[in-house]
Design a protein around this nucleic acid. Structure first.
Length: 309
DNA sequence: CCTATAGGATTCTTACTGTT
DNA sequence: AACAGTAAGAATCCTATAGG
């Protein structure tokens, strides 16, 4: 909502860096900022409230420089709130910026509807601790017992045709839009596909084929897959990375979904939460259009769409 | 303390295919 | 034949951290 107001007043534009758009509208609500250096260069100080000059801050975090980009997941995390004794909020936001019409590849981190901090710590490997430590300092609720393990909603801020004045679109998209089957099934299916490709080159008996299928059921963990592999006598260590591209159905900016150009959109599942958003828009009398998307693989989504002048 | 490295990250280009 | 959209491929950079 804040972002729409800022767009309306001209303080930010759809062509600005995605980081700048988020920092301008939400800096004080953030519990984690991945690009501390980028933010600093733009004139935002992530540590403002915590005395950035304080040497103890660096020590606590084990960082030499407080203004670095960690290059870890996610790009942003919002602060959590307590509602009726329950932790809520704390949303994850990942940015994807692209020159063309498709969404920039997901690299290493497969998009999902929810993630816990514990999962984020693990998937970041060596860098996981830093992400948690920063969030602990910036989020007042970090002492809460649920803080690391409650499910946080993931959103993806995507921009397509970022340099085309007439084609540009920016959307904040519910992770559910991309996660139409769980990672647990996705990765085994991927190995199954690879295996099937080999069937053209080798005669593979049916029992082997079935055994392979059973084996692939256990290959589910992208983190374990992505380590570089020590191979006896090999002088190189191969690394398998899972990169992912959204299919056309998985791209909310697909033409057939009909989202207009030059818009800033919020795209969420059509459920109870959507009603809350609708009420806010009505109350504030904002210039926002509502559309529906029938996702080819995943039910109905609502699009709250603001068109820039 | 210092250095090397593992493991984190994104975007552009090209080839191909179907359409006008 | 030009064009547009899609799938596949290729190219590097950065930093926390472990280990010497």
């Amino acid at each position: 909502m804040k972002t729409v107001e800022l767009l309306e007043s001209g303080k930010i534009s759809l062509y600005d860096g995605l980081e700048k758009i988020i920092l301008t509208s939400s800096l004080s609500d953030l519990a984690y900022v991945e690009g501390r250096k980028t933010a600093h260069d733009l004139g935002f100080d992530v540590w403002k409230k915590l005395k950035p000059s304080d040497e103890r801050l660096k020590q606590k975090l084990g960082l030499k420089n407080l203004y670095t980009n960690s290059q870890a997941f996610p790009d942003f995390m919002f602060k959590s709130r307590v509602n009726n004794g329950q932790l809520v909020g704390g949303e994850i936001l990942e940015l994807k910026d692209a020159q063309g019409g498709n969404i920039a590849s997901f690299n290493s981190t497969i998009p999902t509807e929810y993630k816990t901090l514990k999962e984020i710590e693990r998937l970041n490997g060596q860098k996981g601790k830093t992400v948690i430590k920063i969030a602990e300092l910036l989020d007042e609720n970090s002492k809460n017992a649920e803080w690391r393990i409650y499910k946080r909603k993931c959103f993806y801020m995507i921009r397509t045709h970022k340099k085309h004045q007439d084609k540009i679109r920016v959307s904040i998209v519910d992770g559910a839009f991309f996660e139409t089957i769980p990672e647990r099934e996705l990765i085994p299916s991927m190995f199954q596909n690879i295996f099937d490709r080999h069937a053209g080159e080798y005669e593979i008996p049916d029992n082997i084929r079935e055994d392979a299928r059973q084996v692939f059921r256990y290959l589910t963990d992208h983190i374990l897959i992505s380590f570089s592999q020590d191979i006896t006598n090999a002088s190189i260590k191969p690394r398998l990375r899972i990169m992912a591209e959204a299919t056309k159905e998985g791209n909310p900016h697909w033409r057939e979904y009909g989202i207009p150009e030059k818009t800033f959109n919020l795209i969420i599942k059509a459920d109870g939460e959507a009603k809350i958003v609708e009420d806010i828009i009505k109350k504030r009398e904002m210039r926002i259009q509502k559309h529906k998307i029938k996702h080819r693989n995943d039910g109905e989504f609502l699009v709250f769409s603001y068109r820039v002048r």
